[in-house]
């Protein structure tokens, strides 16, 4: 199919983009296009005006700002994938980005586009949820910053109002030496995950978990943290029993179901993947690795 008629605009500055978004009738913002373009081609959407953000240079790039690593919303997944800074400071994102689509789509797909599309099983929203990312949203004369958990309102529904543009995504890296793991299950390489699990883990000097983040993508209508599982691990030595119990918490999160993938299956994947991801995160933890101990970690091979 061919896209329905629309008028194309390619602003060069954020102000210009904001002004177009505020004044044009039926506007729609175009980021990397890897989700919106198929919808246009299938005539599932029919904006009167398409505002292309790809030429707004200010929306691109990765930088460190204070403690944060900040991504322009139009930063392409390819840039994240190849960024030494991301690899060094946001290893969870570096791992997750490999699972995003295919090379041919990562070359154009953007982090902001993915967050605004907000597919519940997409990798970048899952990582943003796992890391409590902060999202900078701008409209003419107004700038607000939302936590990912506030931004992700519901199924494919971000907390964006008419005329607003997501401009930045700010990640606060975990301290050096933390453990991380991102696992997902999809039918084929590069497909949207059926379920994805992101785990971040910090141990104290005594080898007990002092900070934990466990997030599920693809289970609920948005990526969700699993506080029960996190609480179960906190203060523990993350032994096999602790891991099983935390994984079981993941398997109890209320899940969406459809005829192809029923809710119970998503829950099962959540517990299976959590049971596999937590030991990986543990093994990557500097404190744990230094102790050289795997005896009680639940690693089986």
């Amino acid at each position: 199919m061919k896209a329905p008629p629309f008028r194309y605009h390619a602003p060069r500055t954020l102000d210009e983009a904001l002004s177009l978004a505020a004044t044009l009738p039926g506007p729609r913002l175009l980021a990397g296009g890897q989700s919106l373009m198929p919808m246009l081609n299938f005539r599932l959407v029919g904006p009167e005006n398409l505002i292309d953000l790809n030429r707004v240079a200010a929306l691109s790039g990765i930088r460190e700002e204070g403690e944060d690593v900040v991504f322009g919303a139009m930063t392409r997944q390819r840039e994240i994938e190849y960024s030494p800074l991301v690899k060094a400071r946001l290893p969870l994102l570096a791992e997750a980005i490999q699972w995003v689509g295919h090379r041919q789509t990562r070359n154009r797909g953007t982090i902001g586009g993915s967050l605004c599309h907000l597919d519940p099983s997409a990798e970048q929203p899952t990582v943003a949820m796992a890391m409590d990312a902060s999202l900078v949203i701008v409209s003419p004369g107004r700038r607000r910053e939302l936590a990912m958990r506030t931004f992700a309102v519901d199924l494919m529904t971000p907390a964006l109002e008419d005329g607003e543009i997501l401009t930045e995504v700010r990640f606060r890296p975990w301290p050096p030496g933390h453990g991380w793991a991102f696992l997902e299950f999809a039918r084929r390489h590069g497909d949207y995950a059926i379920v994805a699990v992101a785990v971040l883990l910090e141990l104290d000097a005594s080898g007990r978990a002092s900070r934990v983040s466990i997030t599920l993508g693809g289970v609920a209508s948005t990526p969700v943290r699993v506080p029960d599982a996190e609480t179960r691990l906190l203060g523990s030595r993350v032994g096999a029993d602790d891991i099983s119990a935390a994984a079981a918490c993941c398997g109890r999160v209320e899940a969406l179901g459809d005829p192809q993938v029923p809710a119970w299956y998503r829950q099962r994947l959540a517990s299976t993947l959590a049971a596999r991801a937590i030991p990986i995160a543990l093994s990557r933890n500097a404190a744990h690795a230094a102790a050289g101990s795997t005896s009680d970690s639940g690693l089986t091979s």
């Binding site: 296009g33 890897q34 198929p38 081609n41 299938f42 398409l50 292309d52 789509t105 070359n107 154009r108």
Partner: peptide, 26 residues
């Protein structure tokens, strides 16, 4: 025309991209 089959893949400024997921104007 939905970016999955890859038949339309071309190189844009040296990197691969789906020709069906990019407007000519872009």
């Amino acid at each position: 025309e939905h970016g999955v089959c890859g038949a339309c893949t071309v190189l844009v400024d040296g990197v691969s991209a789906r020709g069906c997921l990019m407007l000519a104007a872009q």
